[in-house]
Design a protein around this nucleic acid. Structure first.
Lengths: 147, 147
DNA sequence: TGATATAATGTTACATTGTAACATTAAAGT
DNA sequence: ACTTTAATGTTACAATGTAACATTATATCA
């Protein structure tokens, strides 16, 4: 068994998050493929294991996993990705650099941004969600552009 | 004529951005309605003026307007909104607080975040896009949640 | 255990956002 | 006016997501 998956299961047990079989399979898929996946891509993988699985299956499970901070949903390109910490506590802030060209994602934890965000949260009485999506061009895609 | 629209047209003339009739109408719609609109909502408005207009018309025009920094595209809820500055120079950084409940958007300009982002851009060699979407719950929707 | 309540999953149908490929029309240049 | 180019219209489709209801597991309790 994959080490990451064990840790997630451990975390879920400790925090009273009951994973159904279906949800466990989705975690397994997201963990093993590693790169960000769209709902459809996850579905196709899941269907290899459970041919009856369909879009609803995925979205319901993903909703729960996102809500529990186990995976991140990235709005920019409709992808889902395992949180690098294997779980995301509510007091834990992270940022994701999303390349608008290739879709590559890099999870970072920048104190300055976190502080600035908390300040903004106070100033505007805005209850921040996690994570912060930072879109732009990754190094590789900048190179491609200049060729 | 709306004052904002005049300023945008002025800006486009000064910067060699040729607006077609269709694009002008879309700017007019976005400016006058003010609240963030989805592509479909803009389409329905446009069709009142040009019954032949369809989805392609909208998306092609929106693409150009976004590219020229006249409007912002917000990925979180697929909406388009006039840049508060009526145009967005490339060296101009802004952030949008997007409420994940009601969709309300507040454009801000926070120096700390801008600085931190520029730093991250350098560190990771990541070419930042504008604007930054900050999702969360606005004041009103926080109240609703606690009722 | 077996009946019943509850939660999870499956099914069907649909709404929304967006794009691809090609046809038509308008605008610009000669 | 003829040609070229750009803009727009048309059709068809792909992807993401949700709503409403049916079915199947799972848990609870008499």
């Amino acid at each position: 068994m994959h080490l990451k998956i064990e840790k997630i299961i451990e975390y879920c047990l400790a925090n009273n998050i009951l994973l159904t079989n279906q949800q466990s399979l989705i975690i397994k898929i997201i963990t093993e493929i590693a790169s960000p996946l769209t709902a459809n891509e996850i579905l196709h993988e899941l269907q290899k294991l459970n041919p009856k699985a369909n879009r609803m299956t995925i979205h319901r499970a993903l909703e729960i996993l996102v809500k529990n901070g186990i995976i991140h949903k990235v709005a920019f390109n409709h992808t889902y990705k395992l949180c690098d910490h294997l779980y995301c506590k509510h007091d834990h802030h992270c940022q994701i650099l999303v390349c608008q060209e290739c879709g590559n994602q890099t999870e970072i934890h920048n104190l300055k941004i976190t502080e600035a965000l908390l300040e903004i949260g106070k100033t505007y009485n805005f209850n921040l969600a996690n994570p912060l999506e930072i879109t732009g061009l990754c190094t590789k895609c900048q190179m491609k552009g200049t060729l």
